[in-house]
Design a protein around this nucleic acid. Structure first.
Lengths: 113, 113
DNA sequence: GTAATCTATTATTATATATTCAAATAATCA
DNA sequence: TGATTATTTGAATATATAATAATAGATTAC
């Protein structure tokens, strides 16, 4: 159970693979389209897709000399959304801390606490 | 953005760390309690907590010679739940495929399609 | 007060795994 | 056959994991 999860999260633990999933979240795409969207070269994209295929996160269907990729489970979209929310919360926290720091700086005689 | 997410997922890409987070999802715990729950030895747990701290996923508060750990963002709980759902969907898919395979086996004269 | 005990963390190192890049290969189309 | 699309391979490099010993801080016992 935890093992599966760890492997799953490992598949997500890479910027390009996240980007690919976000592109596929908008709808099925050929490798060429994915390449264009993520701005990486062919073998890099192909390799990352191979990892995502191996982990059953995406699937590819041949269409002539093209391959169309889709997300295997739409819940990936939700997972990415939750992660984005956590990121935003983290950002808010960071900004809040900076604001506090700024306030302290403006009050030289702050209590020693 | 993707970088942060990748680092975040990397922190989740380990069985023991997932287990720790699941334990903390039930409420704050001392290291000793976490150890008992996950059944790993002290330095292993401590090292994984260090990684989770470094990624701002958990925070530890000293209480005498004990340290109490909590999740920094309760949305981690939701993320783990979504991941669990994806796992379950995957399991269902796998079982469905096995069922199909079984059916085919029982019908020797299956269509060639 | 000191030593022992408890709780937790850090450091170190061998080993495993992942990433990156470029070249080679394979399948399909015109 | 050459062009297009995509995948695989190989190797250098980077990063993660796991186990053990050492260290640090707080509490308790004598």
């Amino acid at each position: 159970m935890q093992r599966f999860k760890a492997e799953f999260f490992k598949a997500l633990a890479h910027p390009l693979r996240i980007r690919i999933l976000e592109v596929l979240a908008e709808g099925e795409k050929s490798v060429n389209e994915i390449q264009t969207h993520v701005g990486s070269e062919g073998s890099a994209v192909s390799q990352q897709l191979q990892i995502l295929r191996a982990k059953n996160i995406v699937s590819g269907t041949k269409d002539g000399n093209k391959v169309i990729y889709t997300l295997k489970d739409p819940m990936i979209i939700e997972l990415l959304a939750v992660a984005r929310q956590i990121f935003n919360n983290h950002l808010v926290d960071t900004i809040t801390i900076l604001d506090r720091f700024k306030d302290d700086e403006e009050v030289p005689a702050a209590p020693k606490n």
